[in-house]
Each structure stands twice: as C-alpha cells, then as structure tokens.
C-alpha cells in the first residue's frame, strides 16, 4: 500500500541550527500518527514540511506516493489545524469554514450548505453567524477543525491541537478527535509535546529529539520497550540506570531502564522473590499522589531510584519513614536494555 505521507532523508537547518537531521518516515493511510518531542526537537518543522509551509534543504516529501517537495501548500491535498487556530477575525464562523470552498470557486449556495454540514459535524451548527472572537477556546478549535476538513483532505495535520485548552476540555477533545478520525478514516498527523496525549490518541508515535527520530513505534511498544534513555524518560517516567552501576547490579555493562511501578520495596530482612534483582538503599522521601505514592530511594553507592506504589498494594505506609533502610527488587525481565547514545 502506498504511504499517505513519506519523508525521505529530509533535512532542514535554520542558520546553524539543524532543525531536522535527515528524517525518514512513512505514515499509512488512515493512521493516527503523532510527532512527539520537547520544544525545539524538530517535530513542528517536520509538520511544516508536510504542509508545505517550509521547504526541506535536502530530501523529499511524498504525499500518496507523489513527490510534492516543490509543490506549494495550496496545491497539496493536506489541511492543517493551527496551534493558535488561525481563524480569520474579519469573517464569520461560517465564512471561515467555507473559505477553502470559496477560493476554489464553489458557488455561494453550495458553500453555505457544506459549511453548515461541517459545523454540524463539530456540533456548532448554531454558531455560523458568530465571529471567532465570540467563541470559547474549545469552540474555536472545533471551527478550525471544520474549516480544515471541508476540503476533504487526504491528510489532516494538527499542530499542538489541544495545547491551549484546559485539562478537562483537553481530555474531552482527545476522545472527540479520536472518534472523528475513526469516523472519517482520514490520516491524522498531530504534533504534541504531551506524551500522555500521544500515547492515548495515536496508532503510532515518532519520538523526536534534536532533529532526529529516536524511536518510531506503537504507544505500547514505546512504553514497554523504549530503545534509548531519552525515550524511556520522555515517554512516561523511568529509572535509567547508567552502565557502570548496571554492571554492579546485573554483571552486564549496559544501561537499562526500569519503570517505577515495576520496582518493589521489600522490607529489610524479607526474602526477595526468586530470581529478582535486588539492591539496598535509604528512603529519601515519599510523595503521596492519591491512587499511588512515589518513593525516592538512594541506592547505596548508586543513583536515586523512583518507586511507584499503588495505595491498595502497599502495606501500611507508616513503616516507610524518611531515612528508613529499604530493599528494592524487580524482575530482571522488566528491565529494558538501552542502546548506548
């Protein structure tokens, strides 16, 4: 099957800053794809290359198998939902939504009908005559969505689509976007710095760091089998044990990551489960999070490791006092070996 989007060794530099360093990736048709990374990692530049707002210094961009490297944005079958929504303030909501039809010469009656349909799709049917300034942030975002979808693009790009919304609205929109994508069957590519968002919405995630893709995988694989220390600690939280200390624990000189929820605190003196990796340390602090609490333990002669303990599983917490001596244990198969960087 032809990829909906393909980048081949695409590079882009701004002055001496390399924003994208020879990126290659392929997004399948109908896929919900996330570009995840901290700010400045190149994820937005990558999106802009696909949209056509920016041009790669070298490499190619293909849409549906066609090379569009030199095609301007208005001739690409791709539409974008902007981070600031970019609604035109001098047009009504309906005019904003119909804009893509207007510039393509669709007649006024047809424009009105289809803009109405799109507004119904995002549940804003009654708001067509308002100005964007009269809408809430969540409503503006839905207008931006309707406007981007009216041209029936093959690919919808979303730049930090939920960044400007508050937490509750963001969770609602996550579910709504996911449902919309499944209903329309369009390829969605969205940029985010929020790993939770990427994990919960995307089919696959490309993790960016310093202009490169660190790992491209399904959310589950990213979480369970991070390949590098960066991915391990950026996607969820992880204890990364550097190779020197790893050698003392496992006899193998290779860094590994272990998730806090997979580390157990064993009361001193208790026998550890059979075959477990075990180390001793001092409890530095306990942070209570409601459903779980998080303990930081300084391992003797080694790093501080985080341990997440579900409240239900934990023995009475009173035993865990700051400065207490504890043993940590985890199953060796839960530790994920990391590639050297």
């Amino acid at each position: 099957m032809t990829a909906a989007i393909e980048l081949r060794a695409a590079s882009r530099a701004f002055g001496t800053v390399v924003a994208l360093d020879s990126i290659s990736l392929a997004v399948a048709p109908g896929e919900f794809f996330a570009l995840l990374g901290p700010s400045g990692s190149g994820k937005t530049t990558c999106l802009r290359l696909i949209a056509g707002f920016d041009r790669a210094d070298s490499g190619e961009v293909l849409l549906g198998g066609v090379d569009v490297t030199d095609v301007p944005p208005f001739d690409r079958n791709v539409n974008t939902v902007f981070q600031d929504y970019a609604l035109f303030p001098h047009m009504s909501v309906a005019e904003n939504v119909a804009y893509g039809l207007k510039v393509r010469g669709v007649n006024a009656a047809e424009r009105r009908r289809r803009a109405g349909e799109m507004l119904e799709l995002v549940r804003l049917g009654a708001y067509g005559d308002r100005r964007p300034a009269q809408l809430s942030g969540g409503q503006r975002q839905r207008v931006a969505l309707a406007r981007a979808l009216i041209n029936q693009p093959h690919v919808l790009l979303l730049d930090e689509p939920l960044g400007a919304l508050d937490l509750k609205l963001r969770e609602e929109m996550q579910a709504e976007l996911k449902a919309l994508q499944q209903r329309l069957g369009i390829t969605f590519v969205f940029v985010t710095h929020d790993q939770g968002e990427a994990l919960s919405m995307a089919d696959r995630v490309a993790v960016f760091s310093q202009g490169r893709i660190e790992q491209l995988d399904t959310p589950r694989a990213l979480y369970n089998r991070p390949r590098t220390a960066f991915v391990a600690s950026f996607v969820g939280s992880a204890n990364v044990v550097e190779d020197a200390f790893a050698e003392r624990l496992t006899g193998r000189r290779q860094a590994f990551a272990i998730r806090p929820e997979l580390v157990e605190i064993v009361a001193a003196g208790d026998a550890a489960p059979e075959g477990a990796v075990r180390c001793e340390g001092t409890l530095e602090d306990v942070l209570y999070h409601g459903a779980s609490s998080r303990c930081h333990v300084r391992v003797d002669g080694g790093p501080v490791l985080a341990v997440a303990r579900a409240e239900t599983a934990a023995p009475p917490g009173a035993e865990l006092r700051q400065g207490a001596r504890v043993s940590l244990a985890w199953r060796p198969e839960h530790a994920v070996m990391l590639e050297a960087q």
Partner: peptide
Amino acid sequence: LPDSWVEASMDLGADGFQTFRHVVLPQ
C-alpha cells in the same frame, strides 16, 4: 498579522493573490 493566518489561507487552497485579497487586505 500572525504568520499563521497567511499560512492557513494558503493551506486551504488560496494562492498568493487570493490570500492577499481575502486575508491580508481586510487586515
């Protein structure tokens, strides 16, 4: 004028002149 307005216009299919006429000029 935010860059994204011009980009949004081009993204939706307007060429340079249409973008000037419908988005930049009113602003």
